[in-house]
Nucleic acid binder design. Structure first.
Length: 266
DNA sequence: ATGACTCATTACATGAGA
């Protein structure tokens, strides 16, 4: 079984590239973030022609998440219980979608960016992560006898958990993504019992998943590692390999993020 | 070359991304 996550920065501008990725890699379940379209605008046809079912959650041109699966797609949840809302007229944004695929509970997550430390979006980001941690800790059903739970929390976490996850910490002085509260909010998932399997399999520095479009960041390999996969213990133990598909950042029409692929033993 | 932002919008300038 192959599970991948990818912030595509608009599915409508990238659908051909995504379909080619599915065919090339044989990915069975793909979690997408930043689809940037409403549900009725999502280009489902190409996925369905390729044998995938698709569940989408998109409310506007902002955010948007989806799951494509060729191993079943059931019990779709749009948003997670307790997910914070944002804005003057508070809206639960399209940042989380869950579905059961091939015996796994998969969540495609697009954590709020935070924007700036003095911006309300930053407090929203921390609250969002805290509420997701609370909810997902319950899914593990620790102490109630569910050691075989197959749960994957994958996506764009918008946190660089280690200094080595950015090319130059000096550039991020006073910026979001690297602060102690954000890193604590990210680490709380490990404390709840999840295993971040991408670093487990790829411990190297400069294994980035995102490069800004500006200032030749990709050719200079000045990137950030912010896309991760937290797995329940049973799912982590099935993970045999992880690939950060950095070739997908090359060429015209690339997303600024690349796919992260998990290989899971059957 | 892996190359000098990109995407969506009752668009033609602005907001968001990180």
């Amino acid at each position: 079984m192959r599970l991948a996550t990818w912030n595509v920065n608009s599915i409508r501008s990238r659908v051909d590239r995504v379909l080619a990725f599915l065919e090339r890699t044989g990915t069975d379940v793909l979690a997408l973030q930043e689809t940037k379209c409403k549900d009725e605008q999502f280009p489902r046809e190409g996925f369905e022609a390729a044998g995938y079912q698709v569940a989408t959650f998109g409310l506007s041109q902002w955010n948007g998440v989806a799951i494509a699966s060729r191993v079943g797609l059931d019990d779709v949840a749009r948003g997670f219980p307790g997910q914070p809302a944002f804005g003057a007229a508070p809206v639960v944004e399209a940042r989380a979608i869950g579905a059961t695929c091939g015996g796994m509970r998969v969540w495609s997550l697009y954590v709020p960016n935070g924007r700036a430390l003095d911006n309300p979006h930053y407090a929203y980001k921390l609250e969002w992560l805290a509420r997701l941690r609370d909810q997902s800790a319950g899914w593990l059903a620790q102490g109630t006898g569910n050691p075989d739970a197959q749960i994957a929390l994958v996506g764009d976490w918008n946190v660089a958990p280690e200094d080595s996850d950015v090319w130059d910490m000096a550039v991020f002085d006073g910026q979001t993504h690297v602060t102690a509260p954000e890193r604590a909010a990210f680490a709380a998932f490990a404390q709840a019992g999840y295993v971040e399997v991408t670093r487990q399999h790829i411990p190297q520095d400069r294994a980035y998943t995102y490069w800004d479009y500006q200032q030749l960041r990709f050719p200079k390999n000045e990137g950030m590692r912010i896309d991760f996969a937290y797995a329940s213990a049973a799912l982590a133990s099935r993970t045999t390999g992880v690939v950060i598909d950095r070739n997908e950042r090359k060429g015209k029409g690339a997303s600024d993020h690349v796919p992260v692929i998990l290989d899971l033993a059957d």
